[in-house]
């Protein structure tokens, strides 16, 4: 668990800094400061929160915001299916443990043989959760005094971190081929599909694993 937490420190720092900018957008569409912090604590999914609020800002109603945010989170479905067999306990206990899944933690917890270290998953998620909620609360307190986090290049940290994990993960030709195929599927679908679905559908590339080597 401690190893997972240590490995997730770059992610936690990033989450905290990105979270600082969330209240600016949320309060613009009429969220109260309290509701903004509660949203980070109970939804705890950055891309879905930013998407939902951005859709509201474009004039859509609550339903449109929920659908857009849900699409953004759809990638957690294949991640959860992969994780499932590595979780002990009954269905309710497994469902609860599955709530710890966020992108970085899921990738850090993967052993590379199809199984997952659940303590590494929990350990990696805890600092990110604290930083996400804490960063949101601090952002609320700072209000409009915040400068633009994009000016600091923070938006490049998540993709760079995922690229680093990918380079560690994709050790053989087959996984590199699947990575290329997943990237191609996601890019191809980006102009047509609602945000979030291209990433979900990229998981189709993993079905090549059904083919015997």
């Amino acid at each position: 668990m401690a190893a997972g937490a240590r490995a997730a420190i770059p992610l936690a720092i990033t989450a905290g800094l990105v979270a600082l900018s969330f209240p600016v957008l949320a309060t613009d569409v009429g969220f109260s400061p309290l509701a903004t912090v509660i949203m980070s604590a109970v939804v705890f999914a950055g891309s879905a929160q930013f998407t939902a609020v951005a859709v509201l800002a474009q004039g859509a109603g609550a339903g449109g915001a929920i659908v857009a945010g849900t699409f953004m989170n759809s990638r957690y479905l294949p991640m959860g299916i992969a994780l499932g067999p590595s979780l002990p306990g009954g269905p309710a206990k497994r469902a609860l443990q599955g709530q710890a899944v966020v992108d970085g933690s899921w990738a850090l917890a993967a052993h590379g043989d199809g199984t997952f270290d659940r303590w590494r998953l929990f350990g990696a998620t805890i600092p990110q959760f604290i930083a996400w909620v804490g960063g949101t609360a601090l952002g609320v307190a700072l209000g409009d005094r915040l400068s633009d986090p994009d000016a600091l290049g923070l938006d490049a940290i998540y993709p760079a971190y995922f690229l680093a994990l990918l380079m560690v993960e994709a050790r053989n030709g087959r996984s590199r081929g699947v990575a290329a195929a997943g990237a191609a599927i996601a890019l191809f679908l980006t102009p047509f599909a609602p945000a979030g679905l291209p990433v979900l559908l990229a998981s189709v590339a993993a079905l090549i694993g059904l083919v015997r080597r």
Binding site: A107, G112, S175, A180, A183, I185, T190, V199
Partner: peptide, 15 residues
Amino acid sequence: VVLLAPALLAALVVT
């Protein structure tokens, strides 16, 4: 399952 990680990570990076 093993191949889901490279597929999803690569898709997250490029998007």
